[in-house]
């Protein structure tokens, strides 16, 4: 079953790109995510706390 549109070349994936390329991309992506997450984590942690409280209140009113 063809799952790629015309013009795309999935076959080239996995060839000619070594582990170094993977690590560079991974490092870029994960470091960017880490920087952003560190900066905004409080917003998400507050939301997790609110959710936990809501669930606790619902289960043990």
């Amino acid at each position: 079953m063809r799952t790629t549109p015309p013009g795309s070349t999935p076959e080239k994936q996995g060839t000619g790109r070594g582990r170094a390329g993977d690590f560079i991309l991974l490092a870029l992506l994960l470091s960017s995510a880490a920087v952003h997450y560190t900066a905004v984590r409080e917003v998400y942690l507050d939301a997790f706390r609110a959710m936990a409280l809501a669930v606790r209140t619902a289960l043990f009113p």
Binding site: Q13, G14, R17, G18, R19, G21, D22, L25, L26, L29, L30, A33, V43, Y44, D46, A47, F48, R49, A50, M51, A54
Partner: peptide, 28 residues
């Protein structure tokens, strides 16, 4: 562009965790 399956899996896992974070925002 990432060739190794385990590296992709790591990113897939990170994406799933981040997606969960977005949903939790609805609670607050």
């Amino acid at each position: 562009l990432i060739t190794a399956t385990r590296h992709r899996a790591l990113l897939h896992l990170a994406c799933t965790i981040f997606a969960l974070h977005s949903v939790i925002l609805l609670a607050d």
